[in-house]
Amino acid sequence: MTEDKNVVNDYTLYNIDSRYTSEKEKKSDSIALMEARLERMKNLSDKDIKRARLMQLKLIMESYLNSGSTDEKNSFTSFLKKYIGIIYQKQNQFAKDVGITPVLLSQIINNHREPSDEFLMKLMVHSEKIFKDVGRFEKQLWYRVYFQDKISETMLNQNEWAPRIEKEIKITEPI
């Protein structure tokens, strides 16, 4: 059977066997690559570092949403704190940029106050502007993270609220 030329080309191009046959070869490649990378890393601009960290944060948020799990490290406020920390040297400057007081921002970040709709909208627009230089940014991302937290928190605390709520709920028209 004669395979057409394109199949052979595509086969070579898109079927890659990149496995090592010896540990010695793998180690030697690792050392050479790390040396070269450390040199290149010295030349990374501040802007590229920020772009990488912002994209990393976005990917962590997407993974968090897709995983459905919750922990203290991954929450709306921890992501917000990271976001501000990547872009600004001082948290107050972010507060100024989005038109809220530093006190209010601090209360939100420390979970002493819920973010308002207005704040979430401002954060959405701020992120859209910032991500123009980074990559794709899903508008709803902050909202989705915030509401995932709310859902998890509500379900986690069911024992506290459910007995009282159940007493208050009546079904006057059963189906």
Binding site: E3, D4, N6, V7, V8, N9, D10, Y11, Y14, N15, I16, D17, S18, R19
Partner: peptide, 14 residues
């Protein structure tokens, strides 16, 4: 380190 990549046969060639 990417060890292997394969594209299914029907998605190769013209």
């Amino acid at each position: 380190h990417i060890r292997l990549i394969a594209v299914s046969k029907e998605n190769l060639g013209s």
